[in-house]
Amino acid sequence: MNDVALKPRLLRSFTKHHLPDEKRPLKNPLHLSRVISTVKTHRLLSENPASQSADQKHIDSWKSAVDAWVNRLLVLVSNKCWAGICLLGLTCQECSLERFLASYSDWFQKLLSHIQPPVESDFVKVASCAAISDLLTRLGGLPNVKKEGTSHASKVLQPILKLLSDDSSDAVSVSTSRMEILNLLWPVYDTYTC
């Protein structure tokens, strides 16, 4: 699986056949688990060939495959698809440093819009909090952009406080969502306050 020519093909296949779209919603969350596992195991978003002798054509193909993946995810995020939001969080963790630095601010704004009340879906709310946590945690590990990370983290505070004080759902759902929000944002607190 270290073949630079194989990784873009596999990523394109997952983008085409396993990501939800307008015609094919996600029917089984286990499919999402398989995609996440494969992307992580084979480092399909890294755009970093193990061999320095990789052909430029294959490197460009890999970049193009990651572009297609990200573009599909951004459409899903815009459509408030919780699966796309989860995968954007994964992308924040797994993509190349260059891609992350070029894109994190736009990704943050898209995710932030999904935790600002009114939030229509608990799945979208929790997925967005998890993805923001992934994004801010990676930012916190990069000394050159930690200041921007702190600025972005401060923008999350008000929406999170509003979500935590929202009592429009039933008591069990509110309690569960509050705990999930707090648990998901704990790594961000550790990163930016220490």
Rank of each mutant, 00 (worst) to 15 (best):
H58P: 03
V77S: 05
P49C: 12
V70R: 05
L44K: 09
Q56H: 13
S53T: 13
R43A: 15
N48K: 15
V70W: 02
L76H: 07
H58S: 14
V77F: 05
D60M: 09
V70G: 00
L74V: 02
I59R: 03
A54Y: 08
A54L: 02
N71W: 02
A68N: 03
K80N: 08
G84F: 03
S61V: 01
R72N: 08
I59D: 02
V77W: 04
E47K: 11
K57L: 08
R43D: 08
L76S: 07
N48L: 11
K80H: 10
L73P: 00
H42D: 04
H58K: 11
K57P: 01
K57V: 12
C81M: 02
W69A: 07
W69I: 00
G84L: 01
S64C: 07
P49V: 11
K80R: 09
A65P: 06
S51T: 12
L73N: 03
V77N: 05
G84V: 07
S61K: 09
A50M: 03
R43L: 04
R43N: 14
H42L: 14
G84S: 08
N71D: 12
Q52G: 15
K57N: 10
K63A: 08
S61N: 13
L76R: 09
W82E: 11
V75A: 06
D55Y: 09
